[in-house]
Write a protein that binds this DNA or RNA. Structure first.
Lengths: 162, 162
DNA sequence: CGACGTTTGTTGAATGTTCAACTTATCAGG
DNA sequence: CCTGATAAGTTGAACATTCAACAAACGTCG
């Protein structure tokens, strides 16, 4: 094995700032959504992905991809969303292994009601803190990180309806 | 109430890229640490914070701050770390409400063993994907986001020992 | 002093996530 | 057609995190 290339002080600072900032931001968004709309951030992403799909439904596997969730997480999450009446499951006719998840009308209404507060929070805590130049840079940086995981910057996930 | 200022297409792309990239990165680090060292990322941060403290111990409240954890989360986490024999609790003599958490020798050894793999992962998935200019920009962007939460860029959290 | 508000830390319940195992179905080759 | 490999989705157990409630100790100000 090779010997470790430790982070120098600058890298150290950047790394800690980044991981802390993204963590705090996500936690605050989670809290905001939970408080105002009774769902964690991840569930919001699932509803958004469904809301943008044709007929507001997707195969579980596609939904997992769109919302960056593991199959297992999605399965559990959809069960909860189904209990809440926001999503329905439907068997896939073509592939008998498959399942469709479909956003219900009520789910869509809940999403419409949740979106403004969520977007306001994203704006306040992210975009309002950055210059236009920084926003552009952040986009490129994020894309580069995703590239590193082999995730094409295509089929990116969640956000507001309309 | 005002009417919502939705994200335009560019903002949309930046936002989704950012939240996805930071999420995937954190998940991969979590998986790497769990697999190679049997602890989640948050626990690693706690051990690092302790390792950097004088005498390798801190008041629970300071530790919570240093590792960006809620009091409750920290309390549960330290209980687990204590069961693992990596951390000890000790009553604070000055303030009888207080508790010190102290990294054990074994805990330090575990941390030493975990750090190289973790740093290698951070380097591979973050720094290796970015130009030096992007790294610099990411540092400033992260600091700006933290500023927005009133968190001074001071007392930033976790990373490798030595 | 002494009452009230604050800080510190813990706890238990509810919830979310992960991992591994499993079932069922599709697909590709022989 | 049959077999083995792969893919889709679910499940349960173990674990982590959140929230609200709580207990105990400070601190302060009348």
């Amino acid at each position: 094995m090779e010997q470790t290339r430790w982070l120098d002080d600058d890298e150290q600072r950047v790394w800690r700032s980044f991981i802390t900032a993204s963590g705090v931001l996500k936690e605050e968004l989670d809290r905001q959504l939970q408080r105002d709309s009774g769902m964690p951030y991840g569930y919001y992403g699932i509803l958004v992905a469904l809301s943008e799909a044709p007929n507001r439904e997707l195969r579980m596997s596609e939904l997992a991809c769109s919302s960056s969730a593991s199959r297992s997480r999605l399965s559990h999450a959809v069960s909860r969303l189904e209990e809440a009446g926001w999503v329905n499951r439907r068997a896939c006719p073509d592939d008998r292994r498959g399942t469709f998840a479909k956003l219900t009308d009520e789910g869509y209404r809940v999403l419409e009601q949740a979106a403004p507060g969520h977007v306001a929070a994203v704006r306040e805590w992210l975009f309002d803190q950055l210059t236009p130049e920084q926003v552009r840079a952040l986009g490129e940086i994020s894309a580069a990180i995703l590239e590193g995981f082999g995730a094409s910057s295509e089929n990116l996930p969640p956000m507001p309806p309309t």
